[in-house]
Design a protein around this nucleic acid. Sequence first.
RNA 1: GGCGGAGUAGCUCAGCUGGUUAGAGCGUCGGAAUCAUAAUCCGUAGGUCGGGGGUUCAAGUCCCUCCUCCGCUACCA
Length: 521
Amino acid sequence: MTMSEPYYITTAIAYPNGRPHIGHAYEAIATDAIARFQRLMGRDVRMVTGTDEHGLKMDQTARAAGRETLEFADEMSTYFKNMCSELNISNDVFMRTSDKRHHEASIALWQAMEASGDLYLDRYEGWYSVRDEAYYGEEELTEGEGGVKLSPQGTPVEWTVEESWFFRLSKYQDALLAHYRDNPDFIRPESRKNEVLRFVEGGLKDLSVSRTSFDWGVPVPGSPGHVMYVWVDALTTYLSGIGFPDKESDFSRFWPANVHIIGKDIVRFHAVYWPAFLLSAGLALPQQIFGHGFILARDGAKMGKSAGNAADPLELAERYGVDQFRYFLLREVNFGQDGSWSEEAIVTRSNAELANSFGNLAQRTLSQIFKNCDAYLPPIHGHTDEDNALFDLVGNTVSETIPTAFENLALSQAVEAWITAVSACNAYIDAQAPWALKKTDTARMETVLATLYICIAQLAVAISPIIPAGAGKMLDAMGVAPELRNFARIKSHWYSPLAEADFRLEQPQGVFPRLELPAEE
RNA sequence: GGCGGAGUAGCUCAGCUGGUUAGAGCGUCGGAAUCAUAAUCCGUAGGUCGGGGGUUCAAGUCCCUCCUCCGCUACCA
C-alpha cells in the first residue's frame, strides 16, 4: 500500500497490420524512459501500451494472407509484445483491443455517450472508393477521362450511402476550445497545438462512429450489424488498460492519465475526438497529449511500413545493444521534433558518450580503486574546493537540471545535461591526476577516487531511465543498494557506510563496449 | 489556395520576452597526459545566422517581401 502520488502514462496503441518499425520502438522507449524517471522520483506509476487490432485493414490483411482475423491478430500482437520485452520496456499492462475486458470497456463508454444523448443513427453519404476503402470530400476529387470522378489516389469513386451511428462532435467545439485555453499544456509541442486549435476553430462536424461494411470490431450495443469505428474503441484502451469500467480497479486511482505519448500524425484523434468522447461520457480529461516526431532514415526517406526501408528495431538493438539503441534515440532526437538515424550515427554517439566518456570514466576510476586501494572503497580525508565544485555541478545536474528536463519531457536536454556533468568528471580526474598522487599523497588520491565514486553513482542513477540495463550493471558492480537507486536517496550519505561495511570491488569490467560498424559487404 | 513550422560553423543542432567580440557536440589541426574501453584533458581553425528591404542607439532575435523544405487543411489507421 503506497501513499505516493500516482502517475499514469501511455503509448499510442499500435496498429499491428505489420511488424513493429523503428517508430514504434522510439515511442515505446521514450514512454518507458519517462515512466522509469517518474518511478525514480518516487511516484506510483502505471504504464500502458498495447495493440489496436480492429478495423478494416486488419481484416483485409488477414484475409489476404488466408488467415482467420483473430488468429492473425494474435500473432501480430505478439511481435509488439516481444518488442517491449526485448527493448526493456517497463509497461505494467499490455492491452489488446480484441480482449474481452476491452470490449466491455468500449461498450461502457459507448453507453455513457449514448446516455448523454450524443449518439444518433443516421445515414453517411459520400464519395466512396472501394479500392481505397475510404470516403473523400467533393473538393478532394479530380476529374478523369470521360468525366469519371477520381480519388486523390486516382481510383474511381462512387456515391455511397451507409447507415451509421454519429457522435455529436459539433456540440463540443466550444467546450474543447475552452479546455485548450484553460490548459495551455494540454497539447504539446506548441506547433501541434496550433494545428489543433485552427482545426477546431474551423468548425466541427459530427463524427461517424460505426461501420456496417465489416464485423471485425466491437459490436455496437443494441444495434446488430454495426461495429464501432476503430478509433472509438482504440482510444478506450487508455481506460480499459487500468480496469475501466470496474470502479474498484486501478481506474479510480490512475485516471485521468498524466500524459498520452503519441505520434504527431494522430494528434487530432487524441486532442479532439478523445476529449470530446470523455466529456460526453462524463469522465475526466487526460492532462496532456504529447505528439512526438518521426524517425527518418538519414537519407531523409520516411520510415514506414510502405516505404520498404523500415529498419527492424530489434535487429538494430541486437547489433548495437539495447541501451545503446535507446540512448541514441533519446539523445540524438529532440523529443517532439523529427529526427534521423543511421547505423554510423548510432555507433558514433554510443562510442563517444557511453563508451568513451561515461564507461571509461567509471572504468578508470574503479580500476584505480581496485589496484591502489586493494579493491576497498577509500576513505575521505576532507574535501577541497575542487571536490566541492564537482559535487555542486554533478549534484545540481542530478537533482535539478535532469529532473526538470524530464518533467518537461525534454528528454534530449536531460541527456545533454548528463553528458556535460560526465565531462566535468573527466576534466576533474585529469586535473587531480590520482595516478600521480599515488606516489606523492595517497590520502589525497583516496579522496579524489572517493569523490569520483560518489559522482559516478549519482550519474548512473540519473541516466538509468534511459539506459536501465547498463546503469544497473554499473551500480551493481559498485555495490550501490537497489533502494538507493532513486533521485532522492542517491544524494544521501551512503558512501561512507558502504566503505565502512568493507565492500570490495570485483575486477572492474567495461559496461559499454566500443562499437564498430559492420564491415561493408 | 489557407494556416503553421523550419532554413545558424564540414555534419547534427542550441540560441527565452532584441543588447558586450554568434554558442555546443561531432569532425579537422596542434599540444598535454598515460590511471583507463588507443579512452581522457587543453587549445586552434571554421559562420556576411536562406536572399533583399525596413524599424531601432542596437536584430540571428521585430516588420515587409522573395526563395527552398516540411506539417495541418476531418471520418485508412
